[in-house]
Design a binder for these strands. Structure first.
Lengths: 226, 226
DNA sequence: CTTCAACAACCAGTATTTTCATAATTTCTT
DNA sequence: AAGAAATTATGAAAATACTGGTTGTTGAAG
């Protein structure tokens, strides 16, 4: 989990950095708005902790630009001074997910971080695997090749998922066997039959064959046209 | 906007009531868990403000029962004493949308109320679930297919709600079992019977079958005609 | 006591996996 | 480069696992 902390008070900044690092997060720091914007555009964060009052570009502006640009769904926790209550509403309006009033308890921050991450993590999972024109939607458990639906049986689905997750790496035969049957393996020719079934569905009707055999090792999904 | 405040300290309760009424909300009060549960089941609220420590039925229990029953999406703001920080996490786990540490600023409460209402109002406008010509009104807990009313039993309602919320995603068998029976599962054939009952009601009388079984995984509501 | 929803047990029908014999391919050896 | 050895592919049939649909029983609520 990677967090960006934006705060102009160097003491607080160092404090937050140490605390969050201790709690197992990877932490980047910025003490002004421009640096923050630069980091945001060049990195991908799971969460941004943002002070409203900043020299130069302020927190609300950063939050706005975040929502209107690429990293739309990165959650934001705002930090505000006690006498800026009106700013809080603006903060939420600009798309913050939560805020904290300074001075705050570090444990309180931690709770809110976890809550926000929990709240947003459900939606942000990438649930579509893709190799060439082959797509696997993990939500609907449906597979398409070149836009056309492909119906697979449970064992084939498991196999394909693993192969797509590991693509373009080779998956060892034992790994696949382990995946399908755990520790008590049936006949040793069994995997071949399943690979055959899978090939019939996803490769046979198409010119560009993706499922390669790596002799003596295992199998691999690979698009040779790139 | 109608708010339910649950708090056993009568002073605080009266205070909150007056403040929120002043701010234009319609406020109901409860000073114990049982009264709260009773009100929740007989009324529809836009927001519930819930003290964790309550005589009899506590706040977490109320929140749990809320999430496992009809008014699933009513947002909840938890109130906790300063030394109950651990409870906060539990609060979020049981499905609270936010929390406040006592003693708190009334203006802070107001900001969070508005934030929570804004955050949830987007989703909660969606109080009618819809899949093809099948409709589920979460307010009245009534279901219609092609405009005709369908009467469902409690277990079927839970099942259907989940399936419609997740549609068109596949819902794993275990997820549904978890939903109906929690951790101590009854017979494994039981879910089949319930699916069967549900099918009889929502699919059997109609040509376009929506409730699909995904062999080896679970079930799915899906409109194939689109 | 009655009623109704939920539960468990069951069989039949269907879908999926496994097996097995044979063909094809790759790799190794000379 | 050719043949032998090892590995992998193919395809259909048999075995297994899963699901649908019923029915009788249980248990709780009114």
């Amino acid at each position: 989990m990677k967090i960006l902390v934006v705060e102009d008070n160097k003491d607080i900044l160092a404090n937050l950095h140490d605390f969050l690092t201790l709690k197992g997060y990877v932490v980047d720091c910025a003490d002004n708005g421009l640096t923050a914007l630069h980091l945001i555009s060049s990195q991908s964060y799971d969460l941004i902790i943002l002070d409203i009052m900043l020299p130069g570009v302020d927190g609300l502006t950063i939050c706005d630009s975040l929502r209107n640009n690429a990293h739309l769904d990165t959650p934001v926790i705002m930090l505000t001074a006690k006498d800026e209550i009106e700013d809080k509403l603006k903060g939420f309006e600009s798309g913050a997910d939560d805020y904290l009033v300074k001075p705050f308890d570090l444990s309180e921050l931690l709770v809110r971080i976890e809550a926000v991450l929990r709240r947003t993590s459900k939606n942000s999972q990438q649930k579509i695997l893709q190799v060439a024109d082959l797509e696997f939607n993990l939500d609907t458990m449906s597979v398409t090749r070149a836009g056309k639906p492909v119906t697979l049986k449970p064992a084939s689905l498991k196999l394909l998922k693993k192969l797509m997750q590991e693509s373009p790496c080779v998956v060892k035969r034992e790994t696949l066997e382990q995946l399908l049957w755990g520790d008590d393996l049936p006949d040793k020719d069994n995997l071949k039959a399943h690979i055959y079934l899978l090939r019939n569905k996803i490769d046979k009707p198409f010119a560009n064959k993706l499922l390669k055999t790596v002799h003596g090792i295992g199998y691999q999904l690979l698009d040779q046209n790139q």
